[in-house]
Simulated scan of single mutants.
Amino acid sequence: MPDAMLTTSGRAETPNAARYLGQLCKHFAHKITVDYDGDAAPDHGTAHFPWGTCRMTATAEALTMDVTADSAEGLDRIRAVVDDHLGRFAWRETLALAWTPPAGG
Rank of each mutant, 00 (worst) to 15 (best):
M1S: 10
P2S: 12
P2G: 11
A4F: 10
L6T: 10
L6Q: 05
T8C: 11
T8I: 11
R11W: 07
R11H: 08
R11D: 09
A12N: 01
E13P: 06
T14R: 07
N16H: 12
N16K: 12
A17G: 01
A17Q: 03
A17F: 05
L21Q: 07
C25H: 05
C25Y: 01
H27M: 08
H27W: 08
F28I: 08
F28P: 01
A29C: 13
A29L: 13
A29E: 14
K31Q: 09
T33H: 14
V34R: 08
D35L: 15
Y36R: 15
Y36Q: 15
D37M: 08
D39S: 14
D39E: 15
A40E: 06
A41M: 15
A41P: 12
H44C: 08
G45N: 09
G45A: 11
T46R: 09
H48T: 08
P50W: 05
P50V: 05
T53A: 14
T53R: 15
T53Q: 13
C54D: 07
C54A: 13
C54N: 07
C54P: 02
C54E: 01
M56P: 02
T57D: 04
A58E: 00
A60S: 09
A60W: 00
E61G: 11
L63S: 01
M65Y: 14
D66R: 09
D66K: 06
D66N: 08
T68Y: 05
T68V: 13
T68I: 12
A69G: 01
S71E: 05
S71T: 13
A72E: 08
E73N: 07
E73R: 08
L75T: 01
D76G: 14
D76I: 11
R79C: 11
V81H: 01
V81K: 04
D83I: 03
H85L: 00
G87W: 00
F89Q: 11
A90H: 06
A90V: 03
W91D: 11
R92F: 03
T94W: 09
L95W: 01
L95F: 01
A96I: 11
L97Q: 02
L97A: 07
W99E: 12
W99C: 12
T100G: 10
A103N: 01
G104P: 06
G105N: 03
